[in-house]
Amino acid sequence: MITIQTLLIAGFVILLLMLLSNPGNLKIQASKKIIGVLFVCAAIFFIVFPEKSNDIAHMLGVGRGADLLLYILTLAFIFVSLNFYLQIKEEQNKNVKLARKIAIIEANQVEKSKKSNQRK
């Protein structure tokens, strides 16, 4: 029997893989999108058949459907937070590289005009 524990641990392992992967990795990107779609499907399913959450919960060894949804929500939250953190770090790095380029170009220009002023 697949318990909730197995599922949750598998979930966290997937999060770890996400963390360790190269952000540009297309396979990971696609997987994230698939996970997103699955989540929406699951959400719609449980909205339409709320009692089913109880059945599935019992199958996994969880007391109530609401508890099951809470566990899934926790996983989802960490997934989303981690994703944001990684993306923000990437964006920050790009910003820094851009700002640096501007700073150095400007400094070189100042140096150049200083030199040509000296020659005059």
């Binding site: 700002a99 640096r100 140096e111």
Partner: peptide
């Protein structure tokens, strides 16, 4: 001294790399 101005504050590490 040569002066390089960061357009925004980015941190000591970024400044050293620049």
């Amino acid at each position: 001294a040569h002066l390089v101005n960061h357009p925004i504050n980015m941190g000591a590490g970024a400044a050293i790399q620049t």
